[in-house]
Design a protein around this nucleic acid. Structure first.
Lengths: 224, 224
DNA sequence: AAATTATTTTAGAATAATCTAAAAAAACAC
DNA sequence: GTGTTTTTTTAGATTATTCTAAAATAATTT
């Protein structure tokens, strides 16, 4: 069994490996966990001897199958708890991350299984990210970045790419939430901004950093 | 803020102080937490400097108001989570203790408040123990008239029903006071009198006008 | 390819929590 | 009230995690 701290490192490596295609490097882990590169090196040696990572000095890391299994379980727990917090306790989606970060370390397998059942086996968390099942398999769905849609097309918000509280609050202010229907209007080429009609009502202009960060499924070609 | 380990010690002290009337001693804490007496001494020093306990070398400990507040919050969280596990996730009462032991350390006040509301503000956990409210008050007290206890049961004196000087002097003479532990012995049916063992020592016979006027809370041996 | 810059690792030390064994204090027994 | 037993504390060490500063390695620039 990994310790709680080891779990944090394993999860960080998993998340970084998702983004970058090559091996995960020390500084990236240090940055994600707000710690020093020296601490990361120490921990990498430990994780290696425990068999959770493949690691060669100066060459970065990848997760072993064991490490991957642990990371996937953490992701599963994190997202199930987020689902619980939003749909049962009525938190908003920008309030739940830190709490789920603690809850994901609760150990009981039985608890996770019963929680999953209690929530009716949800497949996606409140941010639209897929919840792996007990075997670690993710459901993949018809998912597009809003900026990939053409004028006239409508997308239903299913999540965001890069989550941060500030962005979530911005969306709240614009009345954009999970399930909102966003229709692409004119694209203004000189500054790359896009007109978006929100739920067939308000028409707002959003920059690339916004439309490039919202995940939708297309309303017409919907085969979820 | 206390660390997680400090929280465990504070809760252990709270629980021991409930049972014993005098100061809590080192070995009792070590026994409850499955650790060495030396470790306990180390921690007591730390808890003292942090202001959570009153402690003098060789003299045992009591909780300060701050320490008591922390313990009560832990009890509240523990019992709310147990309620959740049994009534929502359908665990049986004997499966939930260890999981609640982990969950009680999750920090967010907002989470506790929302969980409480989600569960419809339960007043007792699945084992029948009272759940303190957000202010730390155990609103409903485990309060019985001594005459309602069965032979073999023990009650801790918390007051009397009808106060008058003569009765108070009578109790003094029998060495019965607040905090005394009274165990019911034989009930003599022909005159409705009851044998009562006082503080596990003297055995006296008391009439209905006496046992019907003393308020106790039952001493619970299998606590949580 | 040499020099510079950036990244990663090592060395040595700090903090939190724990332990065993020995010493000190308190409680008990006769 | 002196001696013995029990309880508690101290002393000294260990493990996990972290840090800063210096050294080693890799990557980049010219």
């Amino acid at each position: 069994m990994p310790t709680r701290t080891e779990e944090d490192y394993i999860k960080a490596i998993y998340k970084l490996a998702e983004k970058e295609k090559s091996n995960v490097n020390t500084n990236a882990i240090a940055g994600m966990l707000n710690t020093s590169a020296a601490s990361v090196t120490d921990m990498l040696k430990k994780l290696k001897t425990k068999g959770f990572i493949n690691y060669k000095k100066y060459k970065g890391v990848t997760l072993t199958p064991d490490g991957n299994r642990i990371a996937t379980k953490l992701i599963r727990k994190h997202r199930l708890w987020e689902y619980f917090l939003v749909h049962k306790l009525k938190f908003t989606w920008d309030q739940v991350h830190d709490i789920a970060e603690e809850l994901e370390h609760i150990q009981s397998e039985e608890l996770v299984s019963r929680l999953d059942h209690f929530l009716d086996n949800p497949k996606f968390d409140p941010h639209g990210d897929p919840i792996p099942n007990a075997e670690g398999k993710f459901t993949i769905r018809n998912q597009h970045i809003l900026s990939d849609l053409f004028p006239g097309e409508t997308g239903i918000v299913i999540g965001i790419k890069e989550s941060n509280d500030e962005f979530l609050r911005f969306l709240s202010g614009e009345k954009i939430k999970l399930g909102s229907e966003l229709t692409i209007g004119k694209i203004i080429h000189y500054d790359q901004s896009v007109e978006v009609i929100i739920d067939h009502g308000n028409n707002v202009r959003l920059g690339q950093s916004v439309v490039g960060n919202i995940l939708v499924r297309k309303k017409i070609l919907n085969y979820e």
